[in-house]
Simulated scan of single mutants.
Amino acid sequence: MPRARVNGLELEYDTFGSPENPPIVLVMGLGAQMVTWETGFCGLLADGGFHVVRFDNRDIGLSTYLDDLPVPDLAALAAGDLTSVPYTLSDLASDVTGLVDALGAGRAHVVGASLGGMIAQQLAIDSPDRLLSLTSIMSTTGDPSVGNPEPAALAGLTRPPATTREQAIEDGVAWFRLVGSPGHPSDEEFLRMKATRNYDRANHPAGTLRQAAAVVASGDRTAKLLEVRVPTLVIHGESDPLINVSGGKATAEAIPGAELLLLPGMGHELPRQLWPTIAAAIIEHARKA
C-alpha cells in the first residue's frame, strides 16, 4: 500500500474508485486501523462515484509510531494537567489535510467514526475551507455531560493490553461482542477474523494511549462547533454502549443545519447489515454538498 509523507510522519493509506472522482477521506477511531473501514463498505462509496481514501492515523496500524514521545500521565490528565499530552486533535486533523494535499485533492468530503468523528469535527473548526462536507459517525462533542459510555464498555476500553497473540485475539472478539449491535449481530467467524487481522497487521497499544490523551486534552468543542458552516451529517446508533447516542444528538444540535440519522439497533460499529443504509446516506449528503 502507498504511504504519504505528512507533518514529518508517514501515513499508510489505500484508495478505492477513480482518482478523477471527488475524494472521500475516511478517518477511523481510537486505536482502530484503517481496515476497520471494511473493503465492502468502501466499495459501496466508490460505486457511488467517489474516490475513497482510508488511512491509518498516526501512532496506529502501519503509520508512524511516536514512541519517542512521553507516555501520557493519566492521573495528571484527570486532574487537568495536560503537560504530558504528546499531541492534540488539531494535530490529528492536520494529518488529514496533509494527506489530502499529498493526494493533490485540495478539498475533500471527510467521514469520521468515533475518535475519527472528533478529528473530523476539529478539522471543520480549524480548516473549514478544506472540507466539502463533514460526516460524524458514532462520535460526540467533548462535552462531558453527553456521550458517556456504559460501565461495561468503559471497563473494556481501559483493560490492560494482552501479552500474547492468543489473548489479544480473544480480547478483540470479546470487545466486538461488547460494543456490537444488538439489532444487527455479527457471527463469531466474522468477529474472530477481524480480531486476528487487526493483531497480525499491527499491534501498538502505546499509540492508543496517546490518542486517548489527545481526546482528553482537546476538551469540549461545542462552542466552536456552533460556528461551523460545513454541510454536516451526523449518524449514530441508538444502542451504542461506548458513546451514548446523546453524543450524536449533541453534535447535530451544535452544528447549524446538521442532519441527524439515528439507526435503531446499531452499537459502536458499522454492522454489515447497515452498510447500504449508511453508505447511501453519506453519498446523498456528499452529492448535495
Rank of each mutant, 00 (worst) to 15 (best):
V6R: 07
N7T: 04
E12R: 10
E12W: 13
E12V: 04
F16H: 11
P19S: 01
P19Y: 14
P19W: 15
I24G: 01
I24R: 03
L26R: 04
V27N: 07
M28Q: 08
A32I: 13
M34L: 15
G40H: 06
F50V: 02
G61K: 01
T64R: 02
L74H: 05
A76K: 12
L77K: 08
A78P: 00
D81M: 11
D81T: 10
T83H: 12
V85C: 09
V85K: 03
Y87K: 10
T88F: 14
S90C: 06
D91R: 13
D95F: 02
D95A: 09
D101R: 06
L103I: 03
G106L: 12
H109E: 07
V111R: 02
A113P: 00
S114N: 05
A124G: 09
I125H: 08
D126L: 14
S127K: 15
R130G: 06
S133N: 09
L134R: 05
M138T: 03
S139P: 00
G142K: 11
D143Y: 06
V146C: 06
A152Q: 13
A153S: 14
A153T: 03
A155Y: 13
T158D: 07
P160F: 00
P161E: 01
P161G: 08
T163W: 00
T163C: 03
E166N: 03
E166S: 08
F176Q: 13
P185R: 05
D187E: 12
L191F: 06
K194A: 09
K194R: 14
R197V: 09
R197Q: 11
Y199I: 01
P205K: 02
T208F: 08
Q211A: 12
A213S: 11
A214S: 15
T222E: 05
T222W: 14
K224L: 15
V228Q: 13
T232C: 11
T232W: 11
L233N: 08
E238W: 00
S239K: 13
S239W: 00
S239L: 11
P241K: 10
G247N: 05
I255L: 07
I255F: 12
L262V: 02
G267P: 00
G267L: 06
H268G: 01
E269K: 01
Q273D: 14
T277P: 00
I278K: 05
A286I: 02
A289W: 09
